[in-house]
Design a protein around this nucleic acid. Structure first.
Lengths: 190, 190
DNA sequence: CGAAAATTTGACATGACTCAACTGGAGTGG
DNA sequence: CCACTCCAGTTGAGTCATGTCAAATTTTCG
């Protein structure tokens, strides 16, 4: 059951009783997404948080020169959304696209705010996740600033080996802020 | 009153009644910080969230070559902390230092978690701020990826002119991920 | 006023990018 | 199931934006 994987994830951070779990479940919907399908496109107003039950997504934007720049990946048990568009109701600058066939749980903003009123522990769960996400964002920034192209690749290899398997090389390069050519040459060494 | 500026800030996001405001005030302490003093140093375990009543802070780390790399600024009415260290109790990789004489409100983690239990609206306030912060982090990332040194400077000028006034040029350069020499040459043009 | 720090300026070095050609494997349609 | 196309990945040559280093100048502040 998709929803169980979310309940398990929540249980790692806060306790919900059976009632609360039921209320939560009633606020959710599940969706299968095919590889290359989009949860969000530039210009859309983002309306939901997405919990990735399984699969892999990338969040990216298009640079002036037409190149795609990936700002984030999401895999099993991660949430993904555009918080700026979601909270401001303004058109998003980003695409969120499935890199593999995937299954997601959709929690719309309306339902989410509803849940926050009914079940404070859910709000706590999101508050905790947001803290961790913010920590991760600063760490990402740190790596971008201090590491060379080669070091960024090895660092990725060490910390997130699963990505190297799951996403094509040119997406990794984009995520690391380097060109596919440079990444290819780095891998050729040794 | 320092605490009033925090109450005003909170009121922009959630409503607290007089009782709640009192309870909150009892959990806080206020501190004056002189220019160049630190709220946090590398190796410290971060223990609090800091609300900047007035003044300016920078959060930075030291790169292998010894250079300081700024990851964030904080000014009046912003919160600043190292979420990774705060939540994991591990030594921080960052320094948080006053760029100007400043006044901060200290909310320790213990007091904060206490408040979250007593006053759910405070937890909501932080959840909302964290969402905005996360949005801002992704936007920052976007600019770093898509803009040239010159564009980053002008973008900063347009979006945050107050910083150009308040922080020395070499800190701006660091924040933008360029060298002071390059920034100086950009400013010399036109 | 004097020392230390910040900024400017110029010469030079370099890591990463662009462009282009080539290779190999995956996916598709006949 | 083969043939063809397309896309990802590789490789090499040349370029460029930004970094490094060093010295001169200006500003800050005790």
């Amino acid at each position: 059951m998709p929803i169980e994987s979310l309940l398990n994830h929540i249980a790692r951070f806060v306790k919900l009783n059976a009632d609360e779990q039921q209320v939560l479940s009633d606020h959710l919907s599940v969706k299968k997404v095919r590889k290359k399908e989009f949860l969000l496109k530039e210009g859309d107003i983002c309306t939901a948080n997405y919990f990735i039950v399984n699969g892999c997504f990338r969040m990216y934007f298009i640079k002036e020169n037409g190149q795609e720049q990936i700002v984030a990946f999401g895999i099993d048990d991660w949430w993904i959304t555009d918080y700026t568009s979601l909270e401001t109701h303004k058109p998003s600058l980003y695409y969120i696209q499935a890199v593999e066939d995937a299954e997601v749980i959709i929690l719309t903003k309306t339902q989410r705010d509803n849940l926050f009123d009914k079940i404070p522990m859910i709000e706590r769960y999101f508050r905790i996740l947001l803290q961790r996400l913010q920590g991760a964002s600063v760490t990402r920034l740190k790596y971008l600033f201090e590491l060379s192209a080669e070091e960024k690749y090895h660092n990725m290899n060490n910390h997130f080996p699963e990505f190297i398997q799951r996403v094509p090389q040119y997406m990794l390069a984009s995520y690391l802020g380097i060109t596919p050519e440079v990444l290819s040459k780095i891998r050729a060494k040794k």
